[in-house]
Write a protein that binds this DNA or RNA. Structure first.
Lengths: 218, 218
DNA sequence: TAGATTGTTAATCGATTAACAATC
DNA sequence: TAGATTGTTAATCGATTAACAATC
């Protein structure tokens, strides 16, 4: 028994796993049976040591001189991420971004299905967007509980984010995937995963302006 | 002159700046003239020391017992990120995600305008999506050069990502904002910023399944 | 003034990278 | 076998957190 309970977070590694997975699936289609960590590193512009270390998290061991079995590695990553057992989610906010998320086929491939969407705008209510029905927000609590949905995707305007989050929590959501720039306040134990485009844009903007100044004085 | 040229990367700090900015703008609307780092930390669930350290990157200094001037801080962040001088971009791939990006008003607010979109699908060509004209990919090189666009947003299917990226580079793009799961190979000096939803989903999935196992054995 | 808040220096923590023995 | 590749231990690097003097 450790005095400190061992964090075991490994977020940077987890973030890289989908890239490994994507590449491995391509290799699998090409008929590769094994692949070396070195090769994966090359393709993904990563350090080979980092690749090997990352892959240990899945529990897979490779063979020296040979590498890793492609099929086995794919299964291990998918399993580690829980992408083999289906998760159902609801979505709140059917604007531009919300509609795109509704129709995004990438989620399906990772075991995530958005089963229903909600919006406050009467013109959208009871229509279908991307083949998914859009309901009034009032129906959220009842439906969420009946369908045992515990993941909510939040894509409303920033001003509406906190109240929508509260509605979600009251309706039993255990996790909120927050696509708004708002910082949500939720009870302890509720998972909030922020996915904000503007932080990516911030990094990109800085890199662009650094590149510019280097052009001038190289 | 340093022997090592000083990295000065600070990506984690840069990623947090948009959150400060969003909150500061809210406070400004409420009429706040000054705000303490402690308060910002509280609202954003960050460490106060981290907030103060982050803000130093903008060059702004606060007053003990008072805090920071809201307007000044907003201006400093906007300026640091280069969000006050407009950037024009083109977008390739007008699928679900591409359409959402075309219509995403958040970019506008950060000085980024998508001026034109391109797609390979003849049914989309010469239509308007979100008020933006969609052109044939063939027209990209000529138009990009004429308009001096140097940022390309990539939202095509993964299989088409590499060739679209090459087209962009050939047309003079200095940076590619890559919304596909593909790992792009580009010449040295070209900036690639990956923005992959699946890495966010990976983190969320792990957090969800950890939470589940804790439910069983608390 | 007293004390809340700042900016900075030092300590801690975690992730990446380097070095290397094991092995197929 | 020889050597490419693995897994692991140690060193380095960078970011976060703690401690604290300065100051309004």
């Amino acid at each position: 028994m450790d005095p400190k309970p061992a964090k075991l977070n490994k977020t940077p590694t987890i973030r890289r796993l989908p890239a490994y997975l994507h590449l491995l699936r391509q290799l699998q289609e090409l008929g590769w049976e094994t692949v070396s960590g070195t090769y994966l590193a090359d393709e993904l512009k990563l350090d080979p040591v980092q690749v090997r270390k990352d892959l240990t998290i899945t529990g897979i061991v490779g063979k020296p001189r040979v590498g890793f079995r492609v099929t086995e590695l794919i299964a291990a990553i998918v399993n580690y991420l829980g992408w083999n057992n289906p998760t159902e989610a609801l979505l709140v906010g059917v604007g531009n971004l919300g509609s795109a998320l509704l129709g995004y086929s990438g989620f399906q491939r990772h075991g995530l299905t958005i089963v229903v969407a909600f919006d406050a705008d009467p013109r959208k209510i009871d229509t279908e967007v991307q083949g998914k029905i859009v309901l009034s927000l009032e129906k959220l609590p009842g439906l969420a509980q009946r369908l045992h949905i515990r993941l909510g995707i939040l894509a409303v305007p920033a001003e509406a984010a906190q109240s929508a989050a509260e509605l979600m929590v009251a309706a039993g959501m255990k996790a909120i995937w927050n696509f708004t720039p708002a910082s949500l306040t939720v009870p302890a134990g509720i998972i909030v995963q922020n996915e904000d485009l503007s932080s990516g844009l911030a990094v990109l903007s800085r890199r662009l302006s650094s590149a510019e100044s280097e052009e001038l004085l190289p």
